[in-house]
Design a binder for these strands. Structure first.
Lengths: 220, 220
DNA sequence: GGCGACGAAATGGTTGACAATCCGCCTGCG
DNA sequence: CGCAGGCGGATTGTCAACCATTTCGTCGCC
């Protein structure tokens, strides 16, 4: 329900498409026709094209000559590669956060952890999903590394739509939160090596959970 | 002196500018005026603008509203962040390469290592620079992770121009090659954890070497 | 029913124009 | 003489129209 105040800028168009893909409004493989996007957003063709180019470099969509942009399908091997890269990057982010002298950020992390512990037994995926996202994002912010943050942003987005299913049972929430507790404690207490090791194990565990159900989404 | 055979495509323009920045033909902070690039390359304005956008997302140039693109200046802290990210990514690349079953790639790595050992005492920076680049690139390829490769490509490029100075003395070449020998052996013999640990130490060492002379290039 | 040609639809790319902004310079005033 | 403010060229941001190329569905013909 965007008012027709102003035509959307390229970044806005990109953000809107990104959200659409994350939220599952666009199915992998679905074509993103320029004219439709123009009709939806009111942006000009140049902006739409620029936005699609940007999403292509982010790896969210693929562009084929004269066939345009379509939502990228991820193979299981690509998901594996993504998680491998996330292991490395989130691992070092956790280590750098632990080693950094940022007491307020660490306090906020502890607060989020406390909130997650409270709602743990409730099995509320919705709430846990939000807190989980905030927890990961805060750790990336706490590391203070813009390059790592930018990379992880492109790694997190393409598989976000799959995460909903990952946490669909209370048991998995508990297991994930157990990981979170270990990592949060290591960061708050400044144990960088522990934080990195635990975070890598946590991400790897996430991949194992995901790979089982991935075939359902990937299609082939 | 480009012949007027064909107007260059956007990717070609980007590649040319990238080389220009890498080779030091453009100084950090220097403005990249669209009209000049058009005159140099014969490309159209749209392509030039697309190329500059691409370089901006790669972090090679910064674009300010109505002031256009200029070669990005790197602060020491940004260089530190870059090396921190490289530690994580090249480290996992080395580990994955070691764990992978790709005997031919490992043989090629051993061959490059042998060549580096041969020319070690000669103090030929030119040759060592080439071999060093090939060595790093081969390890990234051997990891078989497109995401890691893409990230490292954007991390390697912006500081390439500084590397020349890093290896300007034979002593440093020897030290770097000692690291290389350890890492190559670990990869060839499939010791993933060793490969990662040694690679991270190697990258960190590179940063320490670089930080000393960085102020000369960064300006401030 | 199969096959090939045709045309609509969509994308790739160029050009020109105009608006917005920045920056150096110049004038006028104190 | 110094400076505030404005002026105009230079540069970038944005758009609209246009054409070439390719894809794809469809229709007619055999």
């Amino acid at each position: 329900m965007i008012a027709k105040t102003k035509p959307l800028a390229a970044l806005d168009v990109a953000a809107r498409l990104r959200d659409g893909i994350r939220m599952g409004r666009f199915v992998p493989g679905q074509r993103l026709v320029e004219a439709d996007i123009i009709a939806d957003t009111g942006a000009t063709r140049s902006r739409v094209r620029e936005a699609l180019q940007r999403l292509a470099t982010e790896g969210l969509v693929t562009i084929e000559e004269f066939r345009g942009a379509s939502v990228k399908k991820l193979t299981l091997d690509e998901v594996r590669q993504i998680y491998r890269a996330r292991m490395a990057l989130e691992g070092i982010a956790a280590a750098d956060f632990a080693a950094a002298d940022v007491p307020d950020l660490k306090a906020r992390l502890a607060a989020i952890q406390e909130e997650m512990n409270q709602g743990e037994s409730s099995g509320d995926h919705e709430q846990f999903g939000r807190l989980n996202t905030a927890w990961h994002r805060l750790i990336i912010e706490g590391a203070g590394n813009d390059y790592v943050r930018a990379f992880l942003a492109t790694l997190t987005v393409p598989i976000y739509r799959l995460l909903f299913s990952t946490f669909y049972n209370a048991q998995r929430i508990d297991a994930a939160n157990a990981d979170h507790r270990l990592i949060t404690a290591a960061i708050v207490e400044g144990r960088a090596e522990d934080a990195e090791r635990f975070m890598r194990a946590h991400v790897e565990q996430g991949f194992h959970s995901l790979s089982a159900i991935h075939s359902h989404f990937a299609g082939n």
